[in-house]
Computed example of a mutant assay.
Amino acid sequence: MAAKKKRVVLTDPRAIRALAHPARQRIIDELYSGRVLTATECAELAGLTPSATSYHLRALERWGIIERAESSTDGRERPWKAPATSLVVPNQPNGAGRLASQAIMRSNVDRMMEQFEELPSDDPWDGVSALNRSRLWLTKAETKQLDKDLLEVLDRYRRGRSAANHPAGTRQVSTLLAIIPTGKPPADD
């Protein structure tokens, strides 16, 4: 079995627009967690018909965001999987790519809120839920390094773990990292 790529990086605005649909994002989230799902299973997750879901799956496949997995044992439906362990959408400076990035971010924040609201108040893991919002004064180079450092930390915890393969006692934990410059750029930039 070939090793899975580490990341799929999307820079083409058309590929990024393909992510903007909430149903697609829900499917991507599950596939990139390590699950392998059929179109019917994806349809149930996304709340769509299998026919509509197949359309979305093919669109995601066209941009290399997902791919077909080996056929299932019954041969009726071919499952889908993520071609890498993570999907990266670098900030797009303008146009439709930037709007799609904003839509993706909004959808992810909404999904994180849903997950937090679904967590029972007596859940023994509730105490590890965390939110850290910071305002930092960084140079452009420091900001790029911060992004690299944060991805390395996540990769360290992601390595070798998926929905199908993880140590006993582990639980899926959602994270959301966003780095967004605010204010006006310095005059020398």
Rank of each mutant, 00 (worst) to 15 (best):
R135Y: 09
L176N: 12
L131F: 01
H56G: 03
E142A: 15
T139E: 08
P79Q: 13
L154W: 05
A141F: 07
G169C: 09
K4L: 15
N91H: 08
S162R: 06
Q25S: 14
A23L: 07
S134T: 14
T170A: 07
L138E: 09
L150Y: 14
E41I: 05
S162P: 04
A52Q: 03
G160H: 00
K144D: 13
N91A: 15
N132H: 12
V89E: 04
E67P: 05
P185F: 06
R68P: 07
A178E: 10
A46M: 05
A59W: 02
A52V: 03
L45K: 04
Q145Y: 09
S33P: 03
Y32P: 05
P22I: 13
A96R: 04
D110H: 12
G95A: 08
E152K: 10
M105H: 12
V36A: 03
V9N: 08
D149I: 10
A103E: 06
R62E: 15
D147A: 09
S86E: 14
R159P: 00
T143F: 04
M112Y: 07
L60E: 00
L150S: 09
K5V: 10
T85F: 00
R171G: 06
A187W: 03
D74R: 14
M112L: 12
S71D: 13
R17E: 13
E77M: 11
E77Q: 14
E142R: 13
T139W: 11
V36I: 15
R111E: 14
Q172A: 14
P120R: 12
C42Q: 00
T85G: 01
P83Y: 02
E118P: 03
E117D: 14
S129V: 10
A141I: 08
P13C: 11
A69G: 15
P185V: 07
V89A: 04
A103W: 00
K184T: 11
A39W: 01
L31Y: 00
I104W: 01
I28D: 00
L31T: 01
A23S: 15
L136G: 07
L48H: 01
D149F: 08
S174D: 10
L177K: 06
L10S: 01
E41T: 11
R7L: 07
A39F: 01
A178T: 13
R78V: 15
I179T: 09
L37H: 00
G183C: 13
L60S: 00
G97I: 02
W63N: 04
I65C: 02
S86Y: 06
A43Q: 01
W137T: 12
S162A: 10
R106T: 14
Q25D: 12
R24P: 01
A96K: 05
L31F: 02
K148C: 04
A15N: 05
R7K: 11
R135E: 09
G97V: 02
N165Y: 03
E117K: 12
V173M: 12
P186V: 04
